[in-house]
Amino acid sequence: MTADRWVARTVRERLGLGRLVPLGEAADGAWLAERAADPVLRRAAAAVPAVVPVSLRVGLADPAETAEPAVPPPPGALPPGPLRIEADFAATADAPLPVTAAALRAALFTAARESLGLLVTEVDLRVTDLLDQAPAAAAPPEEPAAVPPPVEPAAGAAPTGAVAAVAARVPGVAVLTGALGAPVREEDGHIRIELATTREHRALDVAKAVRSAVTAGRTDRPTVTVVITAVV
């Protein structure tokens, strides 16, 4: 692959990730792409009776209430802090809208925390359409985009074969990905690992297990950042 094609591919993949939101607490050293969160949250929303999810966004609840990350963050990542989900949805009038909204809010809170590990403190909802009746057959929730294959590492990247092998063996890791560059970057005492997790495992738990596995037995005590770009 030529340098120009490598750069173009990397830019496309990075833009497709959406925001990189903090996963867990500041000490957990993990971030999750909005692209990875979207299908998980969308499935939870679609399971609420009389609700048709339209759009979902995840961001900081209050940019003034953030913490210093314990490890170097990935490029463009949001700092650790409480999160807000903003959701647009259509609904029928089978139940009062406040009742429907409360059920949707609870479903999104649960999915964000229990399936992913996002520290969501607020869910803002907006009804964009009132339906005469529920759809005869609800469309299946949007599936995540295909997991990007690892891209070719940039020239001069440090050898990372051993780190990649350890990370790939952690339960819940589906594949190492490369939307931000090399799937594993190790330099100046810091390691950044990019991966996709399986939906059967909580994303935050996988990220913490990867960080522990990668540093186990190492005397140089590197810092480790985990970026999850898909849940498959």
Rank of each mutant, 00 (worst) to 15 (best):
V147P: 04
V147L: 07
P148L: 06
P148V: 05
P148S: 13
P148W: 00
P149V: 14
P149C: 00
P149Y: 02
P150F: 02
P150H: 06
V151L: 14
V151T: 15
V151Q: 15
V151D: 13
E152S: 11
P153W: 00
A155F: 00
G156Q: 06
G156C: 10
G156A: 09
A157S: 15
A158K: 12
A158D: 14
A158R: 15
P159A: 02
P159T: 04
P159M: 08
P159R: 04
T160W: 11
T160N: 11
T160G: 10
G161W: 09
G161N: 07
G161L: 12
G161I: 01
A162W: 07
V163P: 03
A164K: 07
A164R: 11
A164M: 06
A165H: 13
A165Y: 02
A165Q: 11
V166Q: 07
V166K: 08
A167D: 08
A168I: 04
R169Y: 01
V170H: 10
P171L: 07
P171E: 07
P171F: 12
P171Q: 09
P171N: 11
P171W: 03
G172H: 09
G172M: 04
G172I: 03
G172F: 06
A174G: 02
A174M: 04
A174T: 08
V175I: 01
L176A: 01
L176T: 00
L176E: 05
L176H: 08
L176K: 00
L176G: 02
T177M: 05
T177C: 01
G178R: 02
G178M: 06
A179I: 04
L180K: 09
L180N: 12
G181K: 06
G181T: 04
G181W: 07
A182V: 04
A182M: 01
P183L: 09
V184E: 05
R185E: 14
R185I: 05
E187G: 12
E187H: 13
D188F: 11
G189S: 02
H190I: 00
H190T: 12
H190P: 05
I191D: 00
R192E: 15
R192C: 08
R192K: 14
I193M: 03
I193H: 10
E194H: 12
E194N: 13
L195P: 01
L195F: 02
A196M: 05
A196I: 06
A196R: 04
A196D: 03
T197G: 03
T197K: 04
T197C: 11
T197Q: 06
T197L: 05
T198A: 10
T198L: 12
R199L: 10
E200A: 15
E200F: 14
E200C: 10
E200D: 15
H201A: 13
H201I: 00
R202I: 03
R202T: 02
A203T: 15
L204Q: 00
L204Y: 01
L204E: 05
D205K: 13
D205R: 14
D205C: 12
D205V: 13
A207Q: 11
A207T: 08
A207W: 12
A207D: 09
K208L: 15
K208M: 10
K208Q: 14
K208G: 13
K208V: 14
A209H: 13
A209S: 15
V210T: 09
V210L: 07
R211P: 03
R211E: 06
R211C: 03
S212P: 01
A213D: 05
V214I: 08
V214A: 09
V214W: 08
V214S: 03
V214P: 00
T215A: 14
T215K: 07
T215Y: 02
